[in-house]
């Protein structure tokens, strides 16, 4: 397709004796949408934590745009252009909705104490830009996060809207890759269909490359270019949705082995 953005080589991490991830290989090209699926405890979220720098791998390497991400702090990874959302929505609940997306632009802005104290022109201009960009990413979700909502605390949002705000917050960091951790969890079919469409737009309109963990197979089927299946920390299958969904290993990981075969 096009430029290779992220390459992961032989990535492993152990927690004590537990291999959360074992010799994982992964890549993503610019403009792709790749889904990571797998049963609970397969290591999907650990995989995200490792890319975003929150967990340090035991061995292996993560190359992003030709540079290794190993040893970088989470904020440096975000600054390099990888943003993420969290499976258990973790918003700044007592900050307003607008502040949530404003604070996410921290690593893209630079005004410090002096600008704030003397209200310099660059400071005011930057504040204006931060606000405008914030409203722009919120506007991506229609009217539900803008208007009078801008100044309300994130805590009043419904579950689905919190998920949307998390995505908006990741978008606000101006990333290259967005890691979405179960973006439609807790949404009803109609909402998840709408969000699936928006995930498509994230690529087509905003130019983001997307890695997504998702359990909802209809969402995976509708937007993914490729699907990676993890189980017990290892890649057990890899390919298009059709290839993966018919793969006997995947079916086994999800459903267990048919009775007659194991007998």
């Amino acid at each position: 397709m096009s430029r290779r953005l992220l390459t992961i080589n032989k990535l492993s991490v152990t927690f004590g004796g537990l291999h959360a991830l074992k010799d994982l290989d992964f890549y993503i090209d610019e403009g792709e949408i790749v889904s990571v699926i797998g049963p609970n405890g397969a290591g999907k979220t650990t995989f995200f934590n490792m890319i975003s720098g929150m967990v340090t791998p035991t061995s292996g390497d993560i190359i992003f745009k030709g540079e290794s991400l190993l040893g970088l702090d989470p904020n440096q990874v975000t600054a390099a252009g990888i943003a993420r959302t969290f499976q258990n929505v973790r918003l700044f609940a007592n900050m307003t909705i607008l502040e949530n997306v404003m604070v996410a632009q921290h690593c893209r802005t630079k005004q410090g104490i002096w600008g704030a104290l003397f209200q310099t022109r660059p400071f005011k201009r930057e504040e204006q830009e931060i606000r405008e960009h914030g409203e722009k990413v919120l506007g991506f979700f229609g009217t539900r996060l803008v208007g009078y909502r801008l100044d309300q605390p994130a805590a009043v949002l419904s579950y689905a809207n919190r998920r949307r705000l998390e995505i908006a917050r990741a978008m606000a960091t101006k990333p290259t890759i967005i890691l979405l951790d179960e973006p439609v969890a807790g949404m009803n079919p109609k909402e998840s269909a709408a969000l699936t469409r928006l995930i498509g737009e994230l690529r087509s309109d905003w130019g983001f490359t997307i890695v997504m963990i998702e359990h909802d197979m209809s969402v995976v089927r509708d937007v993914s270019d490729r699907v990676v299946v993890l189980d017990h920390g290892e890649t057990i299958a890899h390919g298009t949705y059709e290839e993966v969904s018919t793969n006997p290993d995947v079916i086994e990981a999800y459903l267990g082995r048919p009775a007659e075969e194991s007998a």
């Binding site: 975003s52 720098g53 929150m54 702090d73 989470p74 904020n75 975000t78 600054a79 943003a83 993420r84 969290f86 973790r90 700044f92 604070v103 996410a104 632009q105 921290h106 690593c107 893209r108 917050r169 960091t173």
Partner: peptide, 10 residues
Amino acid sequence: SVAEAMGINT
């Protein structure tokens, strides 16, 4: 943790 993941040099 989230603040750091959102790009803030804590």
